[in-house]
Design a protein around this nucleic acid. Structure first.
Lengths: 223, 223
DNA sequence: CGGTGGGTTGAGGTATTTCAAGGCTCGTGG
DNA sequence: CCACGAGCCTTGAAATACCTCAACCCACCG
């Protein structure tokens, strides 16, 4: 083990799951740790690696020149991100909390895909899943009210990261806002409304741990 | 030639371009005509065919239960649409004007892709292009002002369909609005602003033919 | 302990929507 | 050939959902 320039720790491991049963010999790679807030890759940088979240959480986003930010996706343990068809990243990716990622060299993956049809198939599948998420998110961003957006967000997170009834959100209100095309105040108010309606509850004082008390009512708000 | 249930005309032809150099024998298929406003396929219908616009224009959109609509993309001559990785359409597609499409059976395409690596590659490529468009559109929908959205729309259409300096938009203001996450009035006002600033001009009384007089200024508004 | 990084809440401002009126074009039918 | 209605577009005025600005609270941490 050693330490890289960002103070992030590094050691060897193997890529897991989702990419079919890869011939592991081809795809041994590094495991990396990124500190809360540090950048994993930048928009328009050459895409050298493909990443998988081992532990933690990642946001990927685009910026406008004046600093407005749109988060396109949150990546949670098990998720693969940074997969590009062209050679260039189209988002910036940052660790939301201290995060461990596994990575493979993009070219070696492309190489394997040429040999192995199932891997090529998996690549297409993953791209299609990303596309579907983006399509659903366009509907949310273009046409839903703030309450509907927050409800949809909670349901998405509930689906993806609930352990035993409690949702421990890794991201702050500003991240949620930039994901939903709102301001952090509007997100906060929408959560308060849902809380007042008895649809959700908070655990602890941190406001990051949420319990969904009435999923059906939340689903009604989604549409 | 014959006429189908919708009164749309049909005859035989061959699929063109974009899918590499397909072994054409495998992919002979029908050419179809859809009348202005008619549905080509519906959301969540099984995806039997993949389509290419030969002539005309198509919108694909999602609806919320109360009728709010988000158009995810416009398809212009040469564009392929209705390509699904799963077996189900995730948008409704409608002809904006009288439109001719070519179509191949999805299964036969999948079959060819299994044999031919370059076709599989093209499929991934097309999905990745759709993904990129959706990602860019999320930024627009989540973070841009109405003027920026309309400017971006004009630049996109300029790039995709300008013939000799004049842009003949096939879609109405409401379609543009539902694409940009705005109301038709807001789109109309934004166009008026751009017109007043001397950035664009109208041709004829129809307001569908637009001339970009100052592309650099328009690009500034995009960001 | 004081500062910093979240988070909530209130008050006021504003971009966009909603509602409404009017104009133009085009197709249809008397 | 003209009248009429439907569709499309623009523009104004009023309403509103969301944003901005600001104050305050709390937890955490050097």
């Amino acid at each position: 083990m050693f330490v890289n320039l960002n103070g992030n720790r590094v050691h060897k491991t193997r890529f897991l799951g989702e990419l079919g049963n890869l011939p592991q010999s081809e795809l041994v790679l590094n495991e990396f740790k990124y500190r809360r807030g540090s950048e994993i890759f930048g928009e328009s940088e050459p895409a050298e690696y493909v990443y998988q979240v081992a532990d933690g959480a990642v946001r990927s986003y685009k910026l406008l020149s004046d600093g407005r930010r749109q988060i396109g996706a949150f990546h949670l343990p098990g998720d693969i991100f940074g997969l590009e068809n062209g050679g260039v990243h189209r988002f910036t990716a940052e660790a939301i909390v201290n995060t461990t990622v596994r990575l493979v060299k993009r070219v070696s993956l492309a190489h394997v895909a040429e040999q192995d049809v199932t891997v090529a198939h998996d690549l297409l599948n993953m791209t299609a899943i990303n596309l579907q998420h983006a399509e659903d998110h366009m509907l949310l961003l273009g046409r839903k009210t703030s309450l509907e957006r927050v409800a949809a967000f909670l349901l998405e997170m509930d689906r993806r990261l609930t352990a035993a009834g409690v949702m421990a959100l890794p991201m702050c209100r500003r991240d949620i806002a930039d994901y939903l095309g709102l301001t952090l105040e509007t997100v906060s108010r929408a959560l308060s409304v849902l809380h007042d309606k008895g649809i959700l509850g908070f655990l602890g004082q941190t406001q990051r741990q949420i319990v969904l008390l009435d999923r059906p009512k939340l689903a009604e708000l989604d549409l």
